[in-house]
Design a protein around this nucleic acid. Structure first.
Lengths: 236, 236
DNA sequence: CTGCATCCGCCTCGATACTG
DNA sequence: CAGTATCGAGGCGGATGCAG
């Protein structure tokens, strides 16, 4: 019988310290990031988190289930996996906030690009970049195809919704690879240059490109619109 | 000469992973929490973070200065300390978000109360608890005296400002100790019981109590107002 | 006295092997 | 597939030393 070991704690009566006691250890928030897009199985998590070590993942999952942050999905189903509880979903906002910090950091510092890339992480980046103060007045939909991952952003009436899957009738479709996409978010790749080089391909209503770029903070409100949208890949 | 060791990294092209590479290690976000309220010196930080170990604090400070999250304050001054940069201040929101999670967690789980208590952490808790959707229409000021720490909340015109120090003419003054305050935030102490028992003392415009409690999410919008404010400590 | 650096014991982490 | 067992390496915590 193994002794139930006392978890390490900051031992402070502080809301932040309590939070970090639960989700502050290594890998924990990345596990939750994966579960933000829906239930995942042990194997999926292991694959999405290279380097984590099987024992550590197992330990984190037990600890998070114990804390009520996530729960096993339907023990009866053989596709048994893990889902976020309502408490776990409340980490969505802080995770977006930290992602914004990550983008701000990589925008101002030269960082060695991470080895692992997953297109699904682009969804999180877009959610983080969306500035709800800059929602265009018109209702429209921007579809993103990052590698094999497709998702879309619905705007209108001061609301923004980022959803997985393709849009029904997108105003705009943006196609790119995950690496270029992140370099855009990190402001290490200029949107105009990306269009010219063909790293990013855009299709749809030209005027929507400006609104989309403003929405995700890649173009200032004062920058001259127009023209940009008619640019395409340079001819070989 | 010691080799400049490669920092451990998640090595993922993901905004969250980049963020955690910088501020994800143990103690780091707590250091930044301390600096949110203004510049602090090495000694102050050491005192506010029991258990951190002097070498680790020094290492974290070097690393954070290197990352541009904080900067030494005026190397010329003998009161030399550390301040958050603009990048560092961008961690304010995610820290509030994590604090909200911490309060949600402690509201639903029995937790061993942290040994260390600092009244200054109450400021963070109030910032985290404030619901900007519930700002009262009237402009008024709530002053909090938690142990020796005094701060106040200014509301009005849909805006909320949490500021250090006393207010000029507070609509309401709330006095309590840090421990009771946190138990209120963690919903382990009922506001009404706290008033009756004398753990919390309120002074000022009675009707403002309801608005203040709603602002910080300790009273539902539908709960009956009135009466509550006239309660005082039970006679001995 | 402050602001660290050094040393040491321990615990967590990361990788691999193994099991139901 | 979903973990458990094991073990070396390194990060962490505490005590102490030391320079400005």
């Amino acid at each position: 019988m193994t002794m139930a070991r006392e978890r390490r704690s900051y031992d402070q009566q502080c809301a932040l310290a309590y939070a970090l006691d639960v989700v502050g250890e290594r890998w924990t928030l990345l596990i939750i990031r994966e579960l933000l897009h829906g239930p995942r199985r042990y194997r999926d998590l292991l694959e999405a988190l290279p380097g984590i070590g099987t024992n550590l993942l197992a330990a984190r999952l037990v600890s998070l289930v114990d804390a009520g942050v996530l729960a096993p999905t339907e023990p009866r189903r053989r596709t048994g996996g893990y889902t976020l509880t309502e408490l776990g979903r409340s980490l969505h906002e802080p995770i977006l906030g930290l992602s914004r910090f990550g983008l701000a950091y990589t925008s101002t510092h030269e960082v060695r690009p991470g080895v692992t890339v997953r297109a699904s992480w682009a969804v999180l980046a877009v959610e983080a970049m969306v500035d709800s103060e800059r929602v265009p007045d018109v209702g429209e939909t921007y579809q993103f195809q990052v590698d094999t991952e497709t998702f879309h952003v619905e705007v209108g009436a001061g609301q923004v919704q980022v959803r997985p899957g393709p849009a029904v009738d997108p105003t705009l479709t943006v196609r790119t690879d995950a690496s270029s996409f992140f370099r855009l978010g990190m402001r290490q790749l200029d949107p105009i240059e990306a269009l010219v080089s063909g790293a990013v391909a855009v299709e749809g209503v030209p005027a929507a490109v400006t609104r989309c770029l403003r929405l995700i903070g890649l173009m200032s409100d004062t920058a001259a619109p127009g023209r940009l949208a008619v640019l395409g890949p340079a001819p070989a």
